[in-house]
């Protein structure tokens, strides 16, 4: 059985379609990254899974329970770290966790859960004074109550420091090792890369890609780019390069020849072809796609026309 399954799940708000005919499958035991920019339909999807928002059409199950008719059973068996939640400012961290324990009829020790998320010290403090990171930790402790079969984390690392994010990933791995499925939504790809087995990428309410990060990367590697700066661009050079095998696209921008390559090993062939056409190559740079580019490629529609501007651009002197 799948942990989450949706069939043509759709939600419209007036004229706007927030989620369009979504077929999502999260397998039992995996860590699934649910990616997409803000407004892509991630939260609406999660709101439908939790029974916060009824679907316009379509259906879905969570751990085999129907998301509409069996929402109580869904929420009894899962743990949720919601997005944009507010705390009960006058209640302590321990009271929050105890409330989740009471709600589920679980037998956890609240102090044990607070220790796991690193809040032992703050257990008796009122949540009103907590930083965003501490609030996220309380919410995570609440999500862990009752050893749920599925943990839904909606943007769990927003407002949390890198150290906190790392600790959260550790807990996610521990829970997964215990046998829990983890469904992790984020708008930042780097945060899910380290921990997720598979990712689904949402864009404009639709699932536009779903695979392991490695598979998505290798699919995208087809478009690593080679940029040659030359003294002048003679006629025919574009056609000559375009004719080479392994070259998917060639553009000329001023004195730059930009070739998109399906295999990075074709770089030398391209350089030779350009020199054979009578150019003097003055500078060579090659740009491998970053995770950010990969994400942008799936969520903005255009394959990036400019490479990354971070330090990993490889520059070779001619």
């Amino acid at each position: 059985m799948d942990a989450i399954q949706t069939n043509s799940l759709t939600r419209r708000f007036g004229d706007i379609t927030a989620v369009e005919s979504l077929d999502l499958t999260v397998r039992e035991g995996e860590i699934y990254g649910f990616l997409g920019p803000n407004g892509a339909g991630k939260s609406t999807t999660i709101n439908m899974l939790l029974g916060f928002t009824p679907p316009s059409t379509g259906s879905g199950t969570v751990l085999g329970y129907d998301i509409e008719s069996e929402s109580l059973a869904v929420r009894q068996s899962i743990g949720v770290l919601p997005e944009d939640f507010g705390m009960y400012n006058r209640l302590t961290a321990r009271k929050h966790v105890q409330f989740a324990i009471d709600a589920k009829g679980a037998s956890n020790d609240p102090d044990e859960l607070l220790a796991r998320v690193g809040l032992t010290e703050a257990a008796d403090r009122k949540a009103g004074g907590f930083s965003t990171g501490m609030k996220q930790r309380v919410a995570l402790a609440m999500a862990l109550v009752g050893e749920p079969d599925l943990i839904v984390l909606d943007e769990p690392t927003s407002g949390i420091d890198p150290n906190g994010a790392r600790e959260m990933r550790e807990i996610i791995r521990e829970e997964n090792a215990r046998g829990a499925t983890v469904f992790f939504s984020s708008h930042i790809m780097e945060q899910v890369e380290a921990v997720c087995d598979r990712v689904g990428i949402m864009r404009g309410g639709e699932l536009v890609a779903e695979d392991s990060i490695d598979a998505l990367k290798s699919q995208f590697d087809a478009d690593s780019r080679l940029v040659l700066t030359v003294d002048a661009v003679p006629d025919g050079v574009r056609e000559a390069v375009a004719a080479l095998s392994g070259v998917t696209d060639v553009r000329v921008e001023g004195v730059e020849i930009v070739a998109s390559l399906s295999e990075s090993s074709r770089k030398a062939t391209v350089i030779n072809a350009v020199e054979d056409a009578g150019c003097t190559v003055e500078d060579i740079s090659s740009e491998e796609p970053s995770l950010e580019d990969l994400f942008a490629a799936f969520t903005t529609g255009d394959r990036p026309t400019r490479g990354r501007r971070d330090g990993s651009t490889e520059v070779v002197d001619a």
Binding site: G51, L72, D84, F85, G86, A100, A103, K104, M142
Partner: peptide
């Protein structure tokens, strides 16, 4: 108030009708 503050997300994420 729970709807405005967002604590309703805790409440309704837990098994309450």
């Amino acid at each position: 108030k729970e709807r405005e503050s967002g604590s309703i997300r805790f409440l309704l994420g837990l098994p309450f009708t």
